[in-house]
């Protein structure tokens, strides 16, 4: 918690330098510090399509550079970036040339390298069966580690809705993985 607050303060100081005199080196630091999580967020949203995720991540940072003057610190800089990235993802999905990359081949490649394979495959399949809103809420709240408030800001969704989706999503996953429960507790310990 203290670490993330310190990280946020460093980001804030770098943002102030960019806003003050357009310091490109400060912006480069911001890109280096945040690109990893923004690209991870987009890869999850795009079901592992790395090149499309990187294209959207590039677009995200270009927009951040142009709009940094409008950033007033109402949220953490990283949350602001997640929000831009999520908006870019939604806009890309609306274009006529968009194709859903969640075909079987992509999914298999995305799920492949880990073990124990069966539990992870079941979890991935159970995730696919959740509604889109439940998936994105669990991605942001659990996997990216945002608070419900931050996720509400990033996804432009009311706080109560975020909490409901998180609760329902976890309940559905629990039900889908009920058979794994006893074994699952051993796997992760």
């Amino acid at each position: 918690m203290a670490d993330s607050a310190a990280e946020a303060r460093i980001d804030q100081a770098l943002v102030a330098r960019v806003q003050l005199d357009g310091d490109r080196r400060a912006f480069e630091q911001l890109v280096r510090r945040n690109q990893g999580m923004v690209r991870a967020q987009l890869r999850r949203l795009l079901h592992g399509d790395e090149s499309a995720a990187d294209d959207l991540a590039q677009e995200t940072f270009m927009l951040a550079w142009r709009r940094l003057g409008q950033f007033r610190g109402e949220a953490r800089f990283s949350s602001w970036l997640y929000r831009i990235a999520y908006t870019c993802f939604l806009q890309a999905r609306r274009t006529p040339t968009w194709h859903e990359s969640g075909d079987d081949e992509t999914l298999e490649r995305w799920q492949a390298p880990m073990h124990p394979v069966d539990l992870r495959l079941d979890l991935e399949r159970a995730m696919q069966r959740l509604s889109a809103a439940e998936q994105v809420v669990l991605l942001h709240c659990v996997q990216l580690g945002l608070t419900h408030e931050d996720a509400s800001y990033v996804l432009a969704m009311p706080l109560g809705t975020v909490k409901t989706h998180a609760m329902r999503g976890k309940a559905k996953l629990k039900a889908a993985l009920a058979d794994w429960h006893d074994a699952g507790a051993e796997e992760i310990s």
């Binding site: 690109q35 990893g36 999580m37 690209r39 991870a40 890869r43 999850r44 880990m114 539990l119 992870r120 979890l123 991935e124 669990l138 659990v142 996997q143 990216l144 976890k170 996953l173 629990k174 993985l177 429960h181 699952g184 507790a185 992760i188």
Partner: peptide
Amino acid sequence: RDDTIEALLRQQFEGPV
């Protein structure tokens, strides 16, 4: 069980690129 699901989801996440 909530913690177990969350732990599984976190394990499934590859982390920063």
